[in-house]
């Protein structure tokens, strides 16, 4: 499903990723782990075409990542960034935001689906009416994740999904992902609890 072959990424001449390879099968849940600043998020960003790779190749669902395929590739992805500092008004706005795009309009979730998702992620049913600045970082993260899961995409890219979650909330998220055997997950985290529940841990180390 996701195949990175010896990719290298540099910013202003400084090498951030060097000849990194990874092969993730459909339905697999993978975490890329390692110390801060080592380039974990850069790998997710390169899968999404946000950063340019200087060497190697990226293949998503048998499509070689290029300017001509990037739209088709992004159509398969859902991405949860580490920070969610968006100027949106309410938690409901955050959840429904991706469904305002033409591609997702047909997948607009029913009330039951939303209610079930909120329950599974241990969120109160009335959270969607709350202002974004009234809810905690962990709640915001789970509302965004609920949105990503309701999109029903095939590839979920999670950047530090547990950064604002306590153990209990983390376990709820992990349990939720486990309920979706078809969903491929590539996450970035240095949280041990999260990492031990993933199928594969890819450890990034500083080049010696």
């Amino acid at each position: 499903m996701v195949n990175l072959d010896k990719i290298s990424v540099s910013f202003d001449g400084v090498k951030v990723i060097e000849e990194f390879s990874m092969n993730v099968k459909r339905g697999q849940k993978v975490v890329i782990s390692g110390p801060s600043g080592i380039g974990k998020s850069t790998i997710l960003n390169s899968i999404l075409g946000f950063v340019e790779i200087q060497k190697g190749s990226i293949e998503i669902d048998k499509m070689l990542l290029s300017a001509s395929t990037i739209k088709q590739i992004r159509a398969k992805t859902a991405w949860l960034p580490q920070d969610l500092y968006f100027k949106l008004d309410s938690a409901g706005d955050l959840l429904f935001f991706p469904f305002s795009f033409a591609q997702n309009k047909n997948h607009k979730p029913t009330e039951n689906e939303i209610s079930e998702m909120l329950e599974n992620l241990q969120l109160e049913q009335n959270i969607l009416s709350k202002k974004l600045d009234e809810i905690s970082g962990g709640q915001k993260q789970r509302v965004a994740l609920a949105s990503q899961l309701l999109l029903k995409k095939t590839l979920l890219l999670l950047d530090e999904p547990t950064s604002a979650l306590d153990d209990e909330a983390q376990n709820a998220v992990i349990k939720m992902l486990r309920l979706k055997p078809e969903l491929t997950v590539v996450s970035v985290s240095h949280n041990n609890n999260w990492n031990k529940h993933m199928d594969t841990i890819i450890e990034l180390k500083k080049p010696s």
């Binding site: 946000f50 159509a75 991405w79 960034p81 991706p98 795009f101 990503q148």
Partner: peptide, 15 residues
């Protein structure tokens, strides 16, 4: 980030 969030989650560039 909001722009990237949008295009990574199904928005066209125009959206």
């Amino acid at each position: 980030l909001l722009y990237q969030y949008s295009i990574a989650n199904g928005a066209t560039q125009s959206e």
